[in-house]
Amino acid sequence: MAEPWEEEEGPVKKFMFVNRKAPYGTIYALESLEVVLISAAFDQDVSLVFMDDGVYQLKKGQDTKGIGMKNFSPTYRALEGYDIETLYVEKESMESRGLSADDMIVPVEVLGKDELTSLMEEQDVLLSF
């Protein structure tokens, strides 16, 4: 059954969420993910970018027991169920941190900063966290 907000067709914009911070240490990553999940209800064209320390948000095998915080990384795996499947990782950020696409908890598309720049140019709404 369609939800009330799905019944009327509104404008569809390109939303890009740019995640630049490590998953723990500050609340930006967690609260960014909360916005992303809500955005799914609006039938917009949503993509996510992980760059700078933000690439650590997708790192496999996170264990947060020692810092008393909830490990929210499994939520990234649930994004597919929200029809949010476009996840970009910036190549330079990933490689300078000794990571590869295999270290990521979900399938990602790795893009160099120039490609990412042109992709950002195409967006209607860029939210940076």
Binding site: G10, P11, K13, F15, Y28, E34, V35, I38, S39, A41, F42, Q44, D124, V125, L126, L127, S128, F129
Partner: peptide
């Protein structure tokens, strides 16, 4: 209010300007 208000603000406005760190 809820986060939906932020997404709606992005949809309705011509520009969403972010002030942050």
């Amino acid at each position: 209010s809820g986060l939906g208000q932020l997404i709606e603000a992005g949809i309705q406005a011509e520009r969403l300007v972010v002030f942050g760190d």
